[in-house]
């Protein structure tokens, strides 16, 4: 195949995102990753839920599925199991993934389904114009929370680690190269890969400066096979570590397990099964 470039993976549809939105970086990183891994367009499916970031599939030149709110993981799980040869990426925002769809991630992790899940986390509902989200800080004032939010924010990395996801990483939209590299690792990981991207909403929650200040790369000596060490890093919230927290390279992916079940199953015809109902 000829030299594929990131722009070859863009559909040409103009993103609905505001200029400066963190999601552009994710679009660039993902298309670069596809190009870097030389995956043919038609062998990729990007599935999403609802929200600004979930409009993603329209902007790339691969098969896509823009589903309903909060359900990109079951949708992507079905797609991958429907055709395990495909590269399947689920994308969405923090409201989509941790609020309405919050019940699905533990199960995607538990199955270790071979998909990459990128959550563009801007700690706000952007499409509905600025309501607090599950990762908004306590006391955030918005129209829907005029007296400040009373909830404490979720910690998505902690959640993914406690669900025992086999690949857990955090990126920042301002660090494109690192993000591209991590997405490439995630796509190649034969299991469930979770990436939280700190992706600021320039209009309703501009956190660029804040994240520039508090993010730092995970120390080089961190052992990514050590879940306890990963949890220690995740517990730190005044600094937001960027990079791969955890990577379990041993665990079998769900597709492999399903294949093993199919292989071990006795070969049967419908007539043979019907015999059981004759007695």
């Amino acid at each position: 195949m000829g030299q594929l470039k990131a722009k070859d993976y863009k559909s040409g549809v103009k993103p609905i995102w505001c200029p400066g939105c963190g999601d552009y970086a994710v679009l660039n990183a993902l298309t670069k990753a596809f190009a870097g891994l030389e995956i043919p367009h038609e062998e990729i499916v990007v599935a999403s839920g609802i929200g600004c970031s979930s409009r993603f599939p329209a902007f790339i030149k691969t098969y896509g599925f823009h589903g309903v709110h909060g359900r990109p993981l079951p949708l992507a799980t079905g797609i991958k199991l429907g055709n395990p040869d495909l590269t399947v990426v689920a994308v969405g925002g923090d409201g989509d993934g941790f609020s309405i769809g919050g019940g699905h991630m533990p199960h995607a992790a538990r199955r270790n389904i071979d998909i990459t899940y990128i959550v563009m986390d801007n700690s706000i509902y952007g499409m509905t114009k600025g309501q607090p989200s599950p990762t908004s800080p306590t006391g955030m004032h918005r129209k829907a929370a005029p007296y400040g939010t009373q909830e404490t924010p979720l910690n998505p990395i902690m959640m993914a680690l406690s669900y025992n996801a086999s690949f857990v990483a955090r990126c920042f939209s301002n660090k494109l190269k690192e993000m591209t590299d991590i997405i490439m690792q995630a796509i190649q990981h034969p299991g469930f890969a979770f990436i939280q991207v700190l992706s600021p909403c320039i209009t309703f929650n501009d956190t660029y400066a804040h994240y520039r200040e508090i993010t730092q790369l995970i120390p080089e000596d961190h052992d990514t096979s050590d879940l306890a060490a990963a949890l220690q890093l995740a517990l730190v919230t005044d600094t937001q570590y960027l990079g791969v927290f955890y990577h379990d390279k041993e665990r079998l992916g769900y597709c492999e397990r399903v294949r093993m079940v199919q292989e071990a199953a006795p070969k049967m015809s419908l007539d043979a099964i019907i015999e059981n109902y004759k007695r």
């Binding site: 309903v68 079951p74 799980t77 019940g103 199955r111």
Partner: peptide
């Protein structure tokens, strides 16, 4: 035995979204 796959999903919403995904594929 027929080369098929069965997933016990986490809820009915996941069930239907999964079958939509598999049928799409």
């Amino acid at each position: 035995s027929f080369g098929g796959t069965l997933v016990q999903a986490e809820d009915e919403i996941a069930s239907i979204n999964m079958i939509i995904g598999a049928a799409f594929a």
